[in-house]
Design a protein around this nucleic acid. Sequence first.
DNA 1: CGACCCGTTGCCCAAAATGCACCGCCGGCA
DNA 2: TGCCGGCGGTGCATTTTGGGCAACGGGTCG
Lengths: 303, 303
Amino acid sequence: MRHLYTFTLIAAVAEAGSMRRAAEDANITASALNRRIRRFEAEFGCEIFERLPGGVRLNPAGEMILHHFRTIRSDLQRVQGQVADLSGERRGHVRVACSQALLPYFLPQQIARYRADHPGVSFAVNVRDRAQAEAELQSFSSDLVLVFEPVSLVDFEILHAAPQRVMAVMRADHPLAAQPEIRLRDVLAQTYVLPTARYGVRHILDRAARRLQHSLAPAVETESFELIRHYVVHERAIGFQIPIGLRVPAVPDAPDALVARPLAERDVPRGAVFLGQMRGRTLPVASARFALQIAAALAGLPD
Amino acid sequence: MRHLYTFTLIAAVAEAGSMRRAAEDANITASALNRRIRRFEAEFGCEIFERLPGGVRLNPAGEMILHHFRTIRSDLQRVQGQVADLSGERRGHVRVACSQALLPYFLPQQIARYRADHPGVSFAVNVRDRAQAEAELQSFSSDLVLVFEPVSLVDFEILHAAPQRVMAVMRADHPLAAQPEIRLRDVLAQTYVLPTARYGVRHILDRAARRLQHSLAPAVETESFELIRHYVVHERAIGFQIPIGLRVPAVPDAPDALVARPLAERDVPRGAVFLGQMRGRTLPVASARFALQIAAALAGLPD
DNA sequence: CGACCCGTTGCCCAAAATGCACCGCCGGCA
DNA sequence: TGCCGGCGGTGCATTTTGGGCAACGGGTCG
């Protein structure tokens, strides 16, 4: 929208850290940009940037302005969505940030189901770790977040929480695969593969290991759960994942097939997948409806 | 602010019901205004006015836009207030809509007390009946509402409720003045003066009378509680008011002095003065602090 | 000290917004 | 029925706004 152009530029400058760089990105000259910002500051009543040698940085007032901007922009999009909705178009766009575990099965299925009813609604799905996901909400970059074990819950309004046990993933012919439930100390004696500290699974395992006076020594540490999953086939190691990210047969049909066994709950407490939005925000219709569907689906999960 | 000019014009057109009249008020020509609105509609994606012979009217989409505008305008003012606050100026403006009963004693005292600490904060006080007050909140024309017995409570977020008995007001030499508590049927046998149906006191009395299979027949019906108060001196009638709007001696010092006696609670249930704001809105600092003070003062009221 | 990048400003011109005159339309009224 | 007045909308000349360009002063870094 035309009337938000100045705010867009302010956001660009804040991100770039320099007017000249932001001006290049926005395809205008630095002088024009500079004058827009100076004019806004005059109107608003105070400067919103600290001028430093080498660039600019938002001051506290500027931070507030930027937040205000993001609020009204998302609010305007919501209004536009509602208007489209009342003219019967039922269009919209849903932006979701989620943990890796939601990618292979859960989200594709849910999105497809939603789009079967509402083909006019498009989706943007971004993979984010726990901390990034919450930042996405605060900056209004995502409407919904679906994440295992969120970090701070500041500005995070919980729409639903689905408990998830941590599962050990291994080849069917792995020595531990015979047990229906696996003790953590048995895992520690084996070769195992872990996600990095940014992820909820690792966080839970770290705490559990600390309680056993152990520290974790993974053979491989990675950001990719897909790598974990494939790696355990090659080295007969143990990987970890939560049920929502798994679809493996209880009875394997081949020795190199994957099996998943829950970790004993007395060793490793269950975590939860949280569905959340920005606190206090009114979601666009499409996002709100999708959130309802997700919440229902999470509630219907086994376990 | 410059970037809200179009919205301001839209609001003016919506209020005036005609572009030409709104253009005159805004000191621009009708053509300029018309083009602004047409351009906005093109940008926004749909028309926001119904074109009628004789003028225009907001359609549902336009109503949403107007509400959006009022939201962001008030939000921007809040941000400006916060910015001023963090630079230590402690300025602000508080807009209160209230019932008549709050005018003579309660609000003047509270405002004076607040301004003693924060002389930079100014106030706007408007008298509104119960329904108008709630409309003021919805249109962001007032920050706070202080009203006896609100009507619908739609979008009305209750910050505090202070119970208030209905008091009968009369001359000290009135026959009923001897009783410490007055029965409604005794009142009905006398001459009495009532506020109109818009006011909470009347509403409560109407219901109470209906329970006694009576209907109210006031000698005088008026919108002004001040008139009621002065009238009962002249005709020895009975008036009504709530304690917060009264400051009369328990023991009168002259036969034409006013006395107030509570109506028996088994006849007339107590009502409440509600302090409220627009639901979900974040108030400017000054308004929020003032609301806290008012809530504390209401909580400390006798009875 | 020079090279470089930064924010900022004066000058000039293009683009956007406005004012003015005018059109077609519709309801009210003689 | 035809005229009048008010309405929203449009073409055109004009004014205002905003952007591009070049240059300045100030700061850092090599």
